[in-house]
Deep mutational scan, measured.
Amino acid sequence: MTTFKLIINGKTLKGEITIEAVDAAEAEKIFKQYANDNGIDGEWTYDDATKTFTVTE
């Protein structure tokens, strides 16, 4: 398992979430479901060097 981080730069929600996932594809699926569940819709980026996803509304 690898640790992945999501940085949320939303209009109403900001913060960071860290999860353990098998790979970046699994982490992205989990993070996008979390964002969808919380009404966050924005532009996604991923930095493989730091294993960090960012979503900006």
Rank of each mutant, 00 (worst) to 15 (best):
A25D: 10
F31K: 00
K5H: 13
L13W: 12
T18N: 09
G10S: 08
G39K: 06
N36S: 07
Y34R: 11
Y46A: 01
D47R: 11
I7Q: 12
T12L: 11
A49F: 11
A27V: 05
T56R: 14
Q33R: 09
T45V: 10
G15A: 14
D37I: 13
E43G: 14
I30T: 08
G39W: 06
I7L: 03
E26R: 02
E43Q: 06
T12P: 07
A27L: 00
G42K: 01
E16Y: 12
T2P: 07
A27Q: 00
F53K: 00
K32Y: 06
L13K: 07
K32Q: 08
T18R: 08
Y34C: 01
K32V: 05
K11V: 07
T45D: 04
L6P: 00
M1Y: 15
K5Q: 09
T50L: 13
A24W: 15
F31A: 12
E43Y: 07
L6T: 02
A25N: 13
N36Q: 13
T12D: 11
T3E: 13
L13Q: 14
T56N: 09
T2S: 05
E16H: 14
E20A: 07
V55D: 00
E28A: 03
K29W: 03
K14E: 02
N38C: 01
T3P: 10
D37A: 15
I7S: 04
E26P: 05
E28C: 02
E57L: 09
T54C: 01
N38H: 14
T3Q: 04
K32M: 04
E57A: 03
E57R: 10
T50V: 03
M1T: 10
K5M: 03
I8L: 08
E20K: 01
E20T: 04
V55L: 10
I30P: 02
I19C: 01
I40F: 09
V22T: 09
D48C: 12
N36D: 05
E26M: 14
D48W: 04
F4E: 00
T56P: 01
A21H: 06
T2G: 05
I30M: 05
A24T: 11
N36F: 15
F31E: 00
G10D: 14
Y46M: 05
T56W: 04
I17E: 06
D48T: 06
K32N: 06
D37W: 15
K14I: 08
G39T: 12
N38Y: 12
E57T: 14
L13D: 14
D41L: 08
A27Y: 00
E26V: 05
A27C: 01
A24M: 07
L6M: 14
L13P: 03
Q33L: 11
F53S: 01
T56C: 03
I30H: 15
V55W: 03
Y34H: 10
E26W: 13
I17R: 03
E57S: 05
E43T: 14
K51I: 10
G42A: 08
I40D: 01
L6Q: 00
A35N: 07
A25T: 09
K11C: 06
A21I: 10
N38K: 13
W44E: 00
V55S: 04
K14Y: 12
T50C: 02
Q33T: 09
D48E: 07
V55N: 03
N9Y: 07
E16V: 06
E16M: 10
T12E: 03
E43I: 07
I30C: 02
W44L: 11
I17S: 09
D23V: 14
N38E: 10
F4K: 00
Y34G: 01
T3F: 15
A35D: 00
Y34W: 07
V55P: 00
D47K: 13
I40S: 12
N9V: 11
E28P: 00
V22S: 13
F4Y: 12
D37Q: 11
T45E: 15
T12K: 09
I30R: 09
L13Y: 12
T45N: 11
E16R: 08
K29F: 02
D48V: 06
E26L: 04
K11I: 04
T54H: 15
A25K: 15
E26S: 13
A25I: 02
K14D: 07
T18C: 02
E20V: 07
A27R: 00
D41Q: 08
K5L: 13
I19W: 11
D23P: 01
E26G: 12
F31D: 00
N9H: 12
A24S: 13
F4M: 02
N9W: 09
I30G: 05
M1F: 03
K32E: 15
Q33C: 02
A35L: 11
A21V: 08
T18D: 08
N38D: 05
E57M: 11
F53T: 02
A21Q: 01
D47W: 06
T50E: 06
D47H: 06
K14H: 14
Q33I: 13
K11P: 04
A35C: 02
G39N: 12
N38S: 08
T12N: 15
Y34T: 08
V22L: 06
K14Q: 03
T3V: 03
K11D: 11
K51M: 08
E28T: 12
Q33V: 14
L13S: 09
T2R: 10
T52K: 08
E16F: 04
T12F: 08
N38F: 13
T54R: 15
D47I: 09
L13I: 04
W44F: 08
F31S: 05
T3Y: 15
A35F: 04
T12Q: 07
F4Q: 01
E20I: 07
F31V: 14
A21Y: 02
A27F: 00
A49R: 02
A35R: 05
G42F: 01
D41N: 14
D47T: 04
K51N: 11
W44A: 01
L6F: 10
I17M: 02
T2A: 07
I17F: 10
D37V: 08
K14A: 05
D47N: 14
K5R: 10
T2E: 13
E28D: 09
T18V: 09
T50W: 06
A49Q: 10
D41W: 06
L13H: 10
K32D: 11
G42P: 01
A24Q: 12
Q33P: 05
A24K: 13
I19D: 06
T2D: 12
Q33N: 01
I17L: 09
T2Y: 12
E57W: 13
K11W: 03
D41S: 10
G15P: 11
T56E: 13
T56S: 15
F53Y: 15
G42M: 04
T54E: 12
T52E: 03
G10W: 14
N38W: 06
D23K: 08
I19P: 00
G39P: 07
I17Q: 09
F4S: 01
F4W: 06
D37P: 02
K14L: 14
G10E: 02
V22C: 03
V22I: 13
D23G: 15
K32L: 15
G42N: 04
G42Y: 04
M1I: 12
D37Y: 15
Y46S: 04
D23N: 14
I40T: 05
K14V: 13
D47Q: 09
N9D: 07
I40E: 04
T50G: 10
D23C: 02
N9I: 10
D37K: 15
T56L: 14
D23M: 02
A25V: 13
V55C: 01
D37C: 03
E28F: 12
F53E: 00
L13T: 15
Y46V: 02
K51H: 05
E16S: 14
G39E: 11
N9S: 06
E57V: 05
E43C: 02
V22A: 14
E43D: 08
Y34F: 07
K32H: 12
K14N: 12
A25W: 05
Y34M: 14
G39M: 15
T3M: 10
A25R: 04
G42W: 11
E43R: 14
I19L: 05
A24C: 02
A25L: 14
L6C: 02
I8D: 01
I7N: 14
T52Y: 10
L6G: 04
F53C: 01
T18L: 15
K11S: 07
A35W: 06
I40H: 14
D37L: 09
G10P: 05
A27M: 01
T2F: 09
N36W: 05
